[in-house]
Amino acid sequence: MRGVLVIAGKDLRNLFLSPLFYGIAGLCTIAWTLVYFLGLQDFAQASAMSMMQGGQEGGANIHFVVFARHISLVNLVMIFSVSAMSMRLFTEEKRNQTMSLLLTSPVTATEITLGKLLAGLTAAWALVAISFLYPLSLRAFASFDWGPLISSYMGLLLITGCYVAIGMFASSLTESTVLSVVMALIFNVMLWFVGAVAEAQPEPPWNKIFEHLNVGTHFVNFIKGSVSVAGLTFFASVIVLMTFLTQRVVESNRWR
């Protein structure tokens, strides 16, 4: 446990003291601000329309018009930015030749991997926290239901957790930062393409299987405000599986 915190602490310190994190966070907020603003405009228009029609329909739903759109953009941006940040986790260590320091220190491969995961999660979740400021700031002007927003953010935290674990695994496989980023991107995007396969498989046993493997269905459920055991299990198992694979790769350094 000590090793986990020491390694995570070092990585986070180096990340938050480097311009990389601020560069990524800055670029993310530019994209988010533009689209969030457009979402708000659409919402204002839709509300005005329903007001003119007498307001019987109950007006537009801010969660779907503004927040859901914001969250799906955050997700899209995270696929790229988390891949870029998580490449550092192991690839940098190997390029710096500092991997031998970690491997000859009294820490286990599991501690090294969990330390890296913790650092990656903290960095990625810091970005998610920044994106949470957008809906939060709206609270000053309007009242809305917290429930679906919180469940959406739960989904967002879990899915970025998956991206981190996948990126960490990719970075453990190679010494090349470029290859590591490209691999992470491909794995992350593949996660979403399982959905396309699911749609192309109408046969009974397969469509169910692919539906459960589809990030899209689980994530949309979180956005809709339904937190299901199936969804939690899915995300948790992706993270655990990727962490386990990374741990095996790190451990294999000892016997290769």
Binding site: K10, N14, L17, S18, N96, Q97, T98, M99, S100, L101, T104
Partner: peptide
Amino acid sequence: YLPENPPVYGDM
């Protein structure tokens, strides 16, 4: 252990 290449982090 001091390996052939000192295992240092340039940004620290």
